[in-house]
Every structure is written in C-alpha cells, then in structure tokens.
Design a protein around this nucleic acid. Structure first.
Length: 488
RNA sequence: GGUCGGAUGGCCGAGUGGCUAGGCAGUGGUCUGCAAAACCAUCUACACCGGUUCGAAUCCGGUUCCGACCUCCA
C-alpha cells in the first residue's frame, strides 16, 4: 500500500500517496447538484471514488469520505438575473425549491444504491451549511481578499494573485485570463472579470435565499465545498476529487478560498475523473445529450437498444481508466455485459472446482499483478485484464485441463473476493436458484425430461425446454446431465 | 483566440523503447439427439511525415483531425 501512486492534477504527475496522518485518509468529492435526474456522468465520479474509498479501506486505512449534495441553486449564468437551477425548476413544477432538491436527492441515492456505490461517511448539504459559508466569507473579507458591492460579496482574484498563485491547478495564467476579456453581460459589480462571487444578493424573484450580514442572498458557486471540507476534514486534508470539468473554475476557486481564509490550500492530492462522451461529445446536463441512469436501467432512452443492469454500467466504467474519456455506445455496453457475465460466471465456477493434490499451473502472480495495476493510479482496466487471465485458468481447471491445489484455489478465491466483490463492488446479478420449492420442482421437471430424452421423445423434451425458456428459465444439457438457471 | 488532452485492430479499451493487455464481435474447434449456453484456440493495430536509436506504436520535431476547459456542468 505504500506503493499507491495517484495522479495529482496539482503537479501533473503520479505521486506516491502519503496521508497526512498515517493510517487514516480524509477525502472530499464533489457530489451532484440536485436539480435533475442523475445521468451516466454522475455515475463516473461516484464509481471512481467509490473504488478508491473501498481500496483504501481494504488496505487498512481508516477513511473519512465526504461527498456533498449541492441543494443550493447556483446561478444559471453570470448575469445578475437572479435565476438559479433549483429555483427555476421549482417554479416550473410549482414546488418549493427544497421539494425539488429533496426529490432528486432521493433519486440520486436510489441510483447510487443500485450501482452498489457505498455511502460516504458524511454527505453534507450545502443548504445545511449556510452559517459555515457566511463565516468563511467573513474570514476572507477580514484577510482582505473579499469585497462587498450592493449586497453581494466577491473574491478579489487579482489581489489574491499578488501573493498566491491563482491558476496553479488548471495551469492558467491570470494575465491571459484578464487579457481574454469576454463580453460584459449587463452591469457587473465585480472589480475584475476574473473575480467570482462569494455571496450573491437575491433579487426579489429569487426564491432560495438566506439572511446574511450583507442582506438576503445565497452563497457563491464554489464556497460550499471549501466550507464543508474544512468543517469535516480540516483545513488540510488528503484527497479532493471530482470531474475534470470542475478543475476550472470550481476547484481553482476552492483553493483560492481556502488559502484566503485559512492560508492553507486544503487538499494535497487533487484527482479528476474524465468525462463520458456520447458520439464523441461530452455527455452533460447542459448539453442536453445525457442519458439518465434510470433510462439505462430500464432501457427507455431512444439511443438504447436494451436495458442495462446497474452492474453492467459499473463494469463499463471500470473497463476504462478513470482519466480517459469513455465513449458510450450500445455495442460497448453490450460487450461490457458479456464480459461481466464471463467474470461473474468464473466466480461461480471457482466454487465448484475440486482441488487436486498439486497445481499444474502457476497462479501466484495474479494477486501481485492486480495490486500493481491498482497501485498505478487505480488502473482498473489492467486489473480486469489480470482477472480475465485468471478466469481462463479457472475455466480450464473446470474443464479438467489443469489442476489446482487447495492452497491455490484459496488464493484465487481470495483474489476474486478482494477485487471483484470488495473493491470493484461487482455484485453478482445472476439470479440464484435458492428457493427450495423451485429447486425441488425443477429437479423433478429435469428428472422427467431426462426420462423423455432416454426414450428419445425429443418433441416433448423440447417442449419443456422451450416452455421454461419462455418463463426465463434456461436448461443446459451437458454430458453428465442437465442443469438449469435463471436467464441472465 | 488562449490553455490542456487525445488519435491503437470490426467495436470498446490498456500499455510500453525490443518479449505484440483484456473484453466484445469474427473464424476454427470441444460438447450435444438437436439447440442454446458454456469452454478452448485464433486472425486483424498502433493518424500522417521526418528524426534519434542496433531497434519505436512507445522518445523528439512537424502535419492533419478530434475533444475538453475558458459560462453552470460529474
């Protein structure tokens, strides 16, 4: 575990991971803004950092994992029109903003549960930390990096940059950003185009609002993460994660806020997962080309040929390295489904293998290879490739082409338990024939059918097989008899 | 326009200066009354042009194309 290397956006390199306090890890990941259905893009960071969370825990670390819910409406755009996402949606549906936020939070949780994403240790709501955010703004103002204009408070990026490096995370230079002026939309109160809001005055029509020393308003777009990470993980913590699209300005602003308030950068390791693309373009809420998770689960989107089990989505995401884009297609998803079935079937097969005196094949390297890949910046696709190599071994043993000793069967069981179940969280979704009534019934049916087969009554035997097939039960005729299982 | 990243076989996706991940599909087998499933084996590759090197898909330079961020976004 000392060998775990993680890519740090801050340095642009893979770095050996060393937690601030040995044995425990503090980790913050940007969660969703709950104003719409969760989509595939939400699944990616959730699963990526779920893998990291599980891996760290499996490696013996005590992990405090904080993943926020953004239930405070951020502004739709930079113009001072007071519109926010949750508020707009609430108006549209004639609901309280909190009804909207709560509804989508619930939906998000349901999807995460289906994807077997573990709950974080703390899942703070932005709306529940308005006080902390106000306190942080006060500190920033006290330290001279915030200024108030007309009931709004802005972060003075230019001043901050005099003593700090604004842009160190995203590799931007403030001069370029200042030179790159965009059209001023309406009258802005900001001193400089690069400044960002810490507190926004609420226009009369703005429904999500809280009192503050600067009047009624709502916190700025980047503040909640700084305030909540600081509250639960301290001024300095180990890992901060999120999607790559958040690097700028969101995370850049977070760093600036933390430095301005606490003189501390916050996280040591910044990790960013890449985007999911659809037909080569980013899948995103704002682009309107997203497929919701529920649409995947029930196959209802017109781009989908079929429904995909949540575990297939999970596996699909793990098949690519988290820093690569991953392109959605039915073909790729279908391939993932098949691959996952192969992997999970091998887990089943492994339990049926009868150990022999000696092994005729070397299985000692699998575990080390998987660990190595995992330690190399969570290279899950390579881990999977090693697991599939092991699948080959398992299957050939099952076919009697190789033998495995008791100890080696144990090694493989440990390996699959560790990676497939514990760390990758790939639950078997193969239906198990565990109902004793059904089992008894089925063994009777198979018995009768075998008799028919002996009598060469193929018509009736096939009728039984086809009939069962229609109710999702599959008969498999092997040389040593027949077995059955629910279809996938 | 600025900043950054990418271009791998039919598809998806790893990777590395020499020993050609893996999955899916295809092909050939095994099994079977037939079928399905399953299993085994196996073919296609590194955008283009130069350079460095004994050797480059991997390093360097250039070209083309694509994407991301620069406005909320996972």
């Amino acid at each position: 575990m000392q060998n775990l290397k993680l890519y740090n956006t801050l340095s642009g390199n893979k770095e050996v991971f060393k937690p601030i306090s040995p044995g425990s890890v503090s980790m913050y990941v940007c969660g969703p803004t709950v104003y719409g259905e969760g989509h595939l893009g939400h699944a990616r960071p959730a699963i990526t950092f779920d893998i990291l969370y599980r891996y760290l825990k499996f490696s013996g670390y005590k992990v405090r994992y904080v993943r926020n819910i953004t239930d405070v409406g951020h502004l739709l755009n930079d113009a001072d029109d007071g519109g926010d996402k949750i508020g707009e949606k609430a108006k549209l549906l004639q609901l309280e903003p909190m009804e909207v936020a709560h509804y989508y939070t619930k939906k998000y949780h349901e999807s995460m549960y289906k994807l077997n994403v573990e709950n974080p240790s703390i899942e703070p709501l932005a709306s529940g930390h308005i006080i902390e955010q106000i306190e942080m703004i006060k500190k920033i103002i006290e330290n001279g990096y915030g200024y108030e204009v007309n009931g709004s408070v802005y972060f003075d990026v230019v001043k901050y940059n005099e003593t700090n490096e604004y842009g160190s995370l995203s590799g931007r230079k403030i001069e370029d950003m200042l030179a790159n002026t965009r059209d001023l939309e309406g009258q802005s109160d900001k001193k400089n185009q690069v400044d960002f809001a810490l507190w926004k005055k609420a226009s009369p029509s703005h429904i999500m609002r809280w009192p503050s020393p600067w009047g009624d308003g709502f916190p700025g777009w980047h503040l909640e993460c700084s305030a909540m990470s600081c509250k639960y993980l301290g001024e300095e913590f180990d890992i901060h994660g999120g999607g790559m699209d958040l690097v700028f300005p969101h995370h850049e602003a977070e760093i600036a806020q933390c430095c301005a308030a606490n003189n501390n950068k916050g996280a040591r390791y910044w990790m960013h997962n890449n985007m999911i693309t659809i037909e080569g373009q980013k899948m995103g809420k704002s682009l309107g080309n997203f497929i919701t998770l529920n649409e995947f689960f029930n196959g209802s989107h017109n781009k989908l040929n079929q429904a995909y089990h949540p575990m297939v989505i999970r596996f699909f995401i793990l098949q690519a390295h988290y820093r690569s884009t991953i392109d959605f297609s039915n073909e790729a998803l279908k391939a993932a489904e098949k691959g996952l079935l192969r992997l999970l079937n091998a887990v089943k097969t492994l339990n049926k293998i009868i150990p022999k005196e000696n092994s005729t094949i070397d299985v000692s390297l699998f575990s080390m290879n998987c660990d190595e890949a995992m330690n190399d910046d969570l290279n899950t696709p390579v881990v999977l490739s090693h697991l599939f190599d092991a699948v080959k071994v398992i299957n050939s043993c099952n076919e009697g082409k190789h033998n495995l000793s008791v100890a080696d069967v144990g090694l493989l069981k440990d390996l699959f338990n560790k990676y497939v179940i514990e760390i990758f969280g790939l639950q078997s979704f193969l239906n198990t024939n565990n109902s004793s009534d059904v089992s008894a019934l089925m063994s009777l049916i198979l018995d009768v059918r075998n008799q028919l087969k002996k009598n060469k009554d193929w018509t009736t035997a096939d009728k039984i097989r086809d009939g069962l097939n229609n109710i999702n039960i599959e008969i498999k005729d092997n040389k040593d008899g027949s077995s059955w299982d629910y279809k996938k």
